[in-house]
Nucleic acid binder design. Structure first.
Lengths: 149, 149
DNA sequence: AGCAAGAATCTCGCTGGGCGAGATAGTGCC
DNA sequence: GGCACTATCTCGCCCAGCGAGATTCTTGCT
């Protein structure tokens, strides 16, 4: 069991988890008359709201890898469902600020709630030192994957 | 730093990694004139080939969450690119077995190679006990997420 | 054996998400 | 004030994926 093998197994696990989370997202989307892209967009917007970062169509589109036309369409859909509303930025009136509605926050919780419970349950079976190890590992992987061009 | 918080942070990390891996997949797809779905299909087929499981359109479609028409379209695209070929099953002649070509295997490695290297590099900074902890954690999470309805 | 029921895959026509190109409105520098 | 630039939106098109149904083969029932 050399480190190459351990890396392989961990990669496969990460990939399997990724695929599974994708499927959870898809099922969630289908259940709420949303498209997978809409779910991703909501998550981005909730993230931005949580960290206080300004959310604009441009930023959102870049995050989602959509062009401007597609971005407009996503926001139109979310706005039509009442999850988001557009507000002109008073500072720079070219900009549109995206404000998430309460319903979107509730939706986000109904999506992440079960997942959080699952992971908390798994984590509770590890002692504090091991929990820290897991967190450090995931942080490192995140950094590595993010920096990959 | 109670366990609820740790769970939250880990969920966010897993989600962030998932989104990042999705983007890597998308970039890879774009670079090879494939659609994201085609990449997912290839991964499924390579998995099946690796484990010796029989790969049929029906199984593939179920895995990808596509209906039969969409599944046929995916296989048509992969076949047109020479990554897969159809072969009638001689046992049950209703079935079609999907055989992956060498080019598909090479493509798979060019996708996973860099990822594996990254993760191996991260893992190498952990001692054996911590590596085992990480592996156990990911295994548990995978199980938990998979069993989530 | 012969036939009905069912399974695996494919074909057809359509919907709509996302793209490219270009229009519109607003900012800021000279 | 005019010019380059940025942010967003509109228009028209393409194609991935869906629903419905056709086709081919298997299997159980009598």
């Amino acid at each position: 069991m050399n480190e190459q093998d351990a890396g392989m197994r961990v990669v496969h696990l990460l990939r399997a988890i990724t695929m599974e989370l994708d499927r959870v997202g898809e099922r969630f989307a289908a259940r709420h008359a949303l498209h997978p892209t809409d779910v991703r967009a909501l998550i981005c917007l909730l993230d931005a709201a949580r960290t206080g970062a300004p959310a604009t169509p441009g930023v959102l589109g870049a995050r989602l890898g959509l062009n401007s036309a597609g971005t407009t369409a996503v926001i139109d859909r979310l706005e039509r469902l009442g999850h988001v509303r557009r507000e002109r930025d008073t500072r720079d009136r070219r900009r549109v600020l995206l404000k998430v509605d309460e319903s979107a926050v509730a939706l986000g919780w109904s999506f992440f709630g079960p997942l959080i419970n699952e992971v908390v349950a798994v984590m509770s079976r590890f002692d504090a030192a091991d929990q820290a190890t897991v967190e450090r590992f995931l942080g490192d992987v995140h950094e590595a994957v993010t920096s990959q061009e």
